[in-house]
Amino acid sequence: MRKPKITVIGGGTGIPVILNSLRHEEVDITAIVTVADDGGSSGALRSVMQLTPPGDLRNVLVAMSDMPKFYEKVFQYRFAEGDGPLAGHPLGNLIISGIAEMEGSTYSAMQILTKFFHVTGKIYPASENPLTLHAVFKDGYEVAGESHIAGYQGMIDHVYVTNTYNDDEPTASRKVVDAIMDSDMIVLGPGSLFTSILPNLVIPEIKQALIDTKAEVAYVCNIMTQYGETEHFTDADHVEVLNRHLGKDVIDTVLVNIQKVPQDYMDHNKFDEYLVQVEHDFAGLRKQVKRVISSDFLRLENGGAFHNGDYVVEELMNLVRMKKR
């Protein structure tokens, strides 16, 4: 029988957790990864080389690979602060950028590296051009650049993307639209709503593919609200923002964590962008989606609250099997 096709869309540190668990299942996986990051090592490399930023792609590559732990340690090694021009750059970012320059695109670099590291599945940058994320706030003020958005005191109304180095309309990478249309399930998130998930969805071709696809569209809602993005948001608020950007109610199923994060557990020095736990609004969700899966998806580690990838994937697999039946 044909393996179920599952496409995961997002960026940051959220989707690698899901992908790492999903690769152990009998599924055909595609990861579509944001290319709007303009901060840190990724931002520095993209401004120098005018290539799509490598950081989120690097983390997804590691999550989907069966590389030995030592190789992973080497690939993720970050140069020390005293290392001059190399300071703060993960070695993997330099490798991806070097191959991208050699091959002419980050898309081609990822196809080479997925073979090199025996990746389970396919990894596509959302666009083959670096994108600039624009956030328009409720008061009409606009901020350009993902790394600058959290610095403005206000509530975001909507976001959009532009090509960073030309005036053409942003387009999806080759094979991205086909992957979405051929999927049995699309998984959005988890990850930062406005800066990791939506930068992919507002690319016109991807937005239209999500509207047209017959795949089940599942959203893994965040556990914590995020400074500068989702203060005071309920899980229903997250879904409303996604559907509003897509132009219709595209989300079929929402997975929400209902296990409480222990009071005073979060290390707010280490995880300073995360505020309080997302509140559950079941009535608000039921107005927007067909199905709500509420469960304990919580993993507590090193003073942070994360998704337990195995628990989330167990529910996703139950869902995709039910849909196939």
Rank of each mutant, 00 (worst) to 15 (best):
Y124D: 07
E142A: 12
S147V: 09
E128N: 15
N243V: 14
L285Y: 03
L131S: 08
V239S: 10
R325V: 11
T195E: 06
L246P: 12
I203W: 08
T132H: 09
V161N: 04
E273K: 14
Q208G: 00
F116L: 15
M322C: 02
A87T: 08
L45T: 08
D237P: 12
G11E: 06
A283P: 00
L242Y: 12
I251K: 04
T34A: 12
L57P: 01
E229G: 09
Y71H: 07
M181Y: 10
E146V: 14
R23L: 06
L242S: 07
A63M: 09
N163Q: 08
I293A: 02
P125A: 05
I180M: 06
V241Q: 11
V313C: 06
M185E: 05
P16T: 13
E240I: 15
S294V: 04
K122Y: 09
S294E: 12
A36F: 11
A172E: 10
G140T: 10
L298M: 08
E128F: 12
T7F: 02
R58M: 03
D184A: 06
R58C: 00
V60Q: 03
S147P: 00
E205D: 15
A135C: 12
S192P: 05
L51K: 07
I99A: 00
L298K: 12
V176F: 08
I9V: 15
K270D: 03
T52E: 10
Q263W: 04
Y265C: 02
G14I: 08
P125D: 07
A236W: 04
A31V: 10
A236N: 10
V176P: 04
G309T: 05
L133T: 11
E279P: 00
L255N: 02
Q263F: 01
K207Q: 13
G104Q: 07
P199D: 09
I96M: 00
P204G: 13
P4N: 10
D212I: 14
S196Y: 13
P85F: 02
L300C: 10
E25Y: 14
I211L: 11
L86N: 03
A218G: 09
A44P: 00
Q226Y: 11
E216Q: 14
V187E: 05
G303H: 13
E146T: 09
M110N: 01
G88K: 03
L246V: 15
V254S: 00
V27S: 08
A109T: 05
D139R: 01
V256M: 01
R321P: 00
D37W: 13
Y124W: 13
I18K: 13
D37T: 11
I112N: 03
M266H: 01
L246M: 14
T164F: 08
G10S: 12
D83W: 06
K323D: 07
V143M: 05
G39N: 08
D212Y: 15
C221W: 09
L133M: 13
K138F: 08
L188I: 12
Q259L: 01
V278G: 05
E205T: 11
L61A: 00
P199G: 11
